[in-house]
């Protein structure tokens, strides 16, 4: 049990070290450029938003949709705050580009034929 605790803790700490978005800025006092840009774009003061919580949520969702946990961490780290916020609404709500596979094409054609000729 102690072992799992150690592994768990090192995983959590490791994720903080590896994730560039989570690195506490050495000089966290200044206003970040992305914050000023976001304020200009939306007129919103985003200082209060708990951004880390949202990132955790999206990472969890990615894992649920079949992404490897470590990879999910890197993927979330590569997103902006706005993109993360969008995805918190639910990944199943977002368009996921896939393209037409042969099977869907066949089904589509079949449905159209049925609609046109057999109704």
């Amino acid at each position: 049990m102690k072992k799992s605790l150690v592994i768990g803790t090192s995983l959590v700490l490791g994720s903080f070290v590896l994730n560039p978005a989570v690195i506490p800025q050495a000089q966290a006092d200044i206003v970040a450029t992305h914050e000023v840009v976001a304020e200009q774009q939306s007129g919103l003061n985003r200082a209060q938003l708990s951004e880390q919580l949202m990132r955790d949520d999206v990472q969890e969702q990615l894992v649920r949709f079949g992404v490897d946990p470590q990879e999910a961490l890197d993927r979330v780290a590569a997103m902006t705050d706005e993109e993360v916020m969008e995805l918190t609404a639910g990944i199943d709500q977002m368009p996921a580009g896939a393209g037409i596979s042969v099977s869907t094409t066949v089904i589509l054609v079949a449905i159209i034929i049925w609609l046109v000729f057999f109704r």
């Binding site: 079949g66 990879e71 590569a78 902006t80 993360v84 977002m94 996921a96 580009g97």
Partner: peptide, 20 residues
């Protein structure tokens, strides 16, 4: 593929293309 593909959605999200 490992950076943008979502197995359970069988597709990729816009924000992940940007991220990659």
């Amino acid at each position: 593929k490992p950076q943008v593909y979502l197995p359970e959605r069988e597709g990729s999200l816009q924000s992940e293309l940007l991220g990659a």
